[in-house]
Design a protein around this nucleic acid. Structure first.
Lengths: 108, 108
DNA sequence: GACACGTGCAACCGTTTGGTTGCATACTCT
DNA sequence: AGAGTATGCAACCAAACGGTTGCACGTGTC
């Protein structure tokens, strides 16, 4: 039942929940109001997000606020980094080619 | 059956396939050699990756080479951008606080 | 043309997923 | 203490997922 962060963000509803609590911490009920599902379904999503440490909870009386653990999002960024390097290299190569063409035109 | 890019990268095997063909285009058979599954299973993953335009194919005789569509990866980067802004803002705020503390110490 | 090779697709199967309903628990207010 | 509110958890269900096996189709090679 160990889910990783990539599975966590795979579901559109969960991405929406993340977007919501990124702005401000919210209770399950408040979050559920934004979706066309039951509160329990949202609760399940929150459990998954908590399991892979993407969100934390903070109890205030009988209400539980869920907050986004923004640091965890960096893991995706870290994974993307290797590919960012590739597309930046390709862009650089494209620039070089364009520069070469420009140079050749000037010669005429 | 419409899958988005986030579902595509949710599976560890698919992320491994992406990592493989990021270096160089490969045939399904060559890719499958790197995993402990059947060629058909890999073929299925490739189909999913093709469906959401993360990979493209190039036929060379009876072999089909799969290549990574690196541009598509930028979609994830674009999605991450909003959160990157948040963690950078927080880091900035932290810096400000530290600077303030430093300043106060100097007064003494 | 016959045959091996590389590949995709359909059918099937067990497991996981996302959802629902119903219930138990914990806190608040009167 | 009792009523109402906020929440989590278990049981269940249909659909989707990831895998396998078997087969069909196109492409090279002899």
């Amino acid at each position: 039942m160990k889910r990783d962060i990539f599975q966590a963000i795979a579901d559109p509803t969960r991405r929406a929940i993340i977007a919501l609590i990124a702005i401000q911490a919210m209770t399950p009920n408040a979050i559920a109001e934004n979706f066309h599902t039951t509160r329990q379904a949202v609760s399940k999503h929150l459990r998954i997000l908590t399991e892979c440490e993407l969100v934390t909870t903070e109890q205030k009386g009988r209400e539980i606020y869920y907050l986004l653990e923004i640091e965890k999002m960096k893991e995706i960024d870290k994974w993307l980094e290797q590919y960012r390097q590739i597309w930046e290299t390709r862009f650089k190569q494209l620039e070089d080619v364009l520069a070469k063409i420009k140079k050749q035109k000037r010669k005429k």
